[in-house]
Simulated scan of single mutants.
Amino acid sequence: MSTIKILAVEDDPIYAESLDFVVQELGYELTGIADNATDALRLLEENPPDLILMDIEIHDTLTGIELAARINRNQRIPIIYVTAFKDKDIFQQAKLTGPVAYIIKPYDPVSLQSAIELALFSASDQPKPAQEVLTVDAFFIRDNTRLVKVKLDEILMVEVDEKYCFIVTGRKRHIINMRLKDLQEKLPRDEFVQVHRSFLVRKSAIDEINTGDQTLRVAEKTIPIGKTYKDHLLATLNYLS
Rank of each mutant, 00 (worst) to 15 (best):
M1G: 12
L7I: 08
L7C: 09
A8M: 09
A8T: 07
I14C: 10
I14Q: 10
E17Y: 07
L19A: 08
F21Y: 09
G27Y: 06
T31H: 02
I33G: 10
I33Q: 07
I33C: 12
I33E: 11
A34H: 07
D35K: 07
D39K: 11
D39T: 10
A40W: 06
R42I: 14
L43V: 10
L44D: 08
L44G: 12
L44K: 06
E45R: 13
P48N: 12
P49L: 13
L51V: 08
M54R: 04
H59V: 09
L62Y: 10
I65C: 00
E66Y: 00
L67E: 04
A69K: 00
I71V: 14
R73D: 10
Q75S: 15
I79W: 10
T83K: 00
T83P: 00
T83M: 03
I90P: 00
Q92L: 15
A94K: 01
G98A: 03
Y107I: 07
Q113C: 11
A115V: 12
I116D: 09
A119M: 03
F121Y: 14
F121Q: 12
S122I: 09
P129Q: 15
A130N: 14
A130V: 15
V133T: 14
V133K: 04
T135F: 13
D143L: 00
T145L: 05
R146W: 03
K151V: 15
L152W: 03
I155H: 02
E159H: 01
D161N: 13
K163E: 13
Y164W: 09
C165N: 04
V168R: 13
R171L: 15
R171Y: 05
R171N: 15
N177R: 08
D182I: 09
Q184R: 09
E185D: 14
E185R: 11
P188M: 05
D190N: 14
Q194W: 08
V201S: 09
R202D: 08
S204W: 00
A205W: 04
E208V: 01
N210H: 06
G212F: 08
V218C: 01
E220V: 04
P224E: 01
K227I: 14
T228N: 10
D231I: 02
D231N: 02
H232N: 13
H232P: 04
S241W: 06
S241L: 10
S241T: 10
